[in-house]
Design a binder for these strands. Structure first.
Lengths: 130, 130
DNA sequence: GTACGACCTGGAGCGCGCTCCAGGTCAACA
DNA sequence: TGTTGACCTGGAGCGCGCTCCAGGTCGTAC
């Protein structure tokens, strides 16, 4: 089973342009081509794309994804290095979550203030007009 | 008490250039100037900068921060609208946290696999070489 | 009085991650 | 046979959020 670029885009959630772009920058190996020279993405290509989008969502820069991609081509020998990259990324995601949590607290505090203002608590005015 | 731009940068964690940039794009009202025409940031300026950096950390685009900033200048009348913006942002932060959590799960799964590989579980090879 | 360092301005430049475009090929269908 | 539509290529362009630069002004220290 293989997929046209449109189908691969639909399934991966990336745009057609982005798929070609990822190939150009060696994030994705060139997929097979059909008789007419059109890209035919394999199941494995899609799995890899899915993982790439996860990495992207974590905020991993493309340059780092490329490093990971190139290590992957070197097979099992590169497993330790790849693991290190993932562990680092896990750390940075955890940090980011903590950071967002703290922002969430600030937002909650502010929102509460606005609500108190709405309810006529004059003590909230100081905060809201600050 | 007022602060030089260098001091304000140090305290806010933003660069000097960024402070001037924020002023230029009306995220920050022009601070007072000292006798020599140099910026003199007030305590209130710093408080606002601190809040701005929180918003930025949540991923709020600058255009939206500008909207918030301009509402703030309109005083209490704009409080409801500002509250709405913050509530929306809280929602998007919560979503983002959830998304990151799910990425964390994927990373953990992958990392576990790499560790099993290291320990000689051949069943992990399939995953790692995929 | 001159050297220094912090600050000023307007404007150009940059890195990132796409996104769009022109001009072309090809297979399928009316 | 002609038109459509999906796909191709190489390369330019874009929006974001800064970041850097040249050339200038001030106040202080020697």
């Amino acid at each position: 089973m293989s997929y046209s670029i449109a189908e691969a885009a639909r399934r991966s959630g990336l745009s057609i342009d982005t798929l070609r772009y990822y190939e150009r920058i060696h994030l994705l190996d060139p997929p097979e081509r059909d008789a007419a020279g059109r890209r035919a993405y394999s199941e494995a290509d899609l799995t890899w794309l899915q993982f790439l989008t996860k990495l992207r969502t974590t905020g991993m820069p493309i340059r780092r994804m490329r490093e990971y991609a190139s290590l992957r081509k070197r097979g099992v020998a590169s497993a330790a290095r790849r693991r290190t990259i993932l562990i680092e990324q896990r750390g940075s995601v955890a940090e980011r979550i903590a950071e967002l949590q703290s922002c969430l607290d600030v937002l909650d505090y502010k929102i509460t203030n606005y609500e108190q203002l709405e309810q006529g608590y004059s003590s909230a005015v100081r905060e809201v007009t600050a």
